[in-house]
Amino acid sequence: MTPLLLHACCGPCSLEPVRLLRAEGFEPTICWTNPNIQPVSEWQRRLDTLRAWADEVAHVDVIVAGDDRDAWEAAAAPAGFDRERRCRACYALRLAEACRVGRERGFEFVSTTLVVSPYQLFDACGEILSAVAPRFGLTPVWRDFRPFYPEATRESRELGMYRQNYCGCRFSAAEAAIERHEARDARKAAKAAARSAAPQV
């Protein structure tokens, strides 16, 4: 098996990448570097969930790398609700730290679980990993894990893993809350319309 450093954003998103990469002949070591996750209690809960699964189920090593919150605030937070600009800065910071660890630990290959979720900016993430990895002497292993998101969701629920409902930062939490409220309002409106259209008896 070929060693590979796998940047992981959370436990549930790690399930399928670890399985699929192993099927390809890689042996992943997970690298946790996510200074975007707020509040710190949420960061800890996600890390604890990842570690428990990695130790008890997947038998994969986890490296807890640097989480420079000041750097995240300087690089990503100024973009605010400009999601494209914010996420690009966030990806670049996290993937650069993972690649730094990869070079330090003697890895040749690097990948990320970020692209399991269909809510992430797939093309932007791939572009950034492809640019950052060579600067650290690493080869990016870029795969489209998105088709396996439903399977990861089902399996993580079966395992009783904690599943978060926003990407990680305070801006994504607000965006997710707005989307949930809009979806709820749309469901209510659809039910009201259906009742109005129903024949009166």
Rank of each mutant, 00 (worst) to 15 (best):
G126R: 03
E127V: 08
R157G: 01
F107E: 07
I178R: 14
R103A: 13
G11C: 03
E73I: 14
G11M: 02
R22T: 06
E151S: 13
P78T: 11
E27S: 08
S156N: 01
F145W: 07
A183R: 11
T139Y: 03
D67M: 10
W43N: 05
P39K: 03
A183K: 11
E24T: 03
C99H: 09
R187C: 05
L50M: 03
Y162H: 09
C169S: 08
I30K: 00
C125Y: 06
E24P: 08
P28I: 06
W32G: 04
R143W: 02
L5M: 04
A192H: 08
A58R: 05
Q200Y: 06
V60S: 00
L159I: 01
F107L: 06
A174S: 15
F26M: 03
A77V: 12
G25S: 10
D68I: 01
R170Y: 15
T153I: 06
W142R: 08
C125N: 13
S14R: 02
A79P: 10
Q164K: 05
D82N: 15
D185N: 09
A198W: 13
G168S: 11
C167Y: 02
G66M: 01
E73A: 13
L93Y: 14
Y162V: 00
A92Y: 12
D82H: 15
C31M: 05
P199A: 07
A176D: 10
R154M: 01
L6C: 06
A71Y: 14
R22V: 10
C87L: 07
T2L: 12
R85Y: 12
F148W: 15
P140S: 05
A79M: 09
E84F: 15
E56M: 09
D185L: 06
E97F: 09
N36Q: 08
Y162S: 05
P35K: 07
P150H: 11
A177F: 12
A54S: 11
P3S: 08
L20S: 06
P3Y: 12
L5A: 12
G137F: 01
A8T: 13
C125V: 06
C90D: 13
P39I: 03
V62H: 04
V40D: 09
Q200V: 15
A152V: 06
F81C: 06
R157S: 09
V18R: 02
W43T: 01
R22D: 00
G25V: 05
C87K: 11
C99A: 14
P118Q: 00
R180H: 13
D70Q: 12
E108G: 07
D68Q: 05
T139A: 04
S117I: 01
A177N: 12
Q200A: 12
T112R: 01
F109Q: 01
T113L: 02
C13N: 13
R100I: 04
Y166K: 00
Y149K: 09
C167L: 01
R103D: 07
A194C: 08
M161Q: 05
R19P: 02
E175K: 08
R195E: 14
G102R: 02
R135Y: 04
P39H: 00
A92E: 15
E73C: 10
W43P: 02
Q200L: 15
C9H: 02
C9M: 06
G25P: 05
G160I: 01
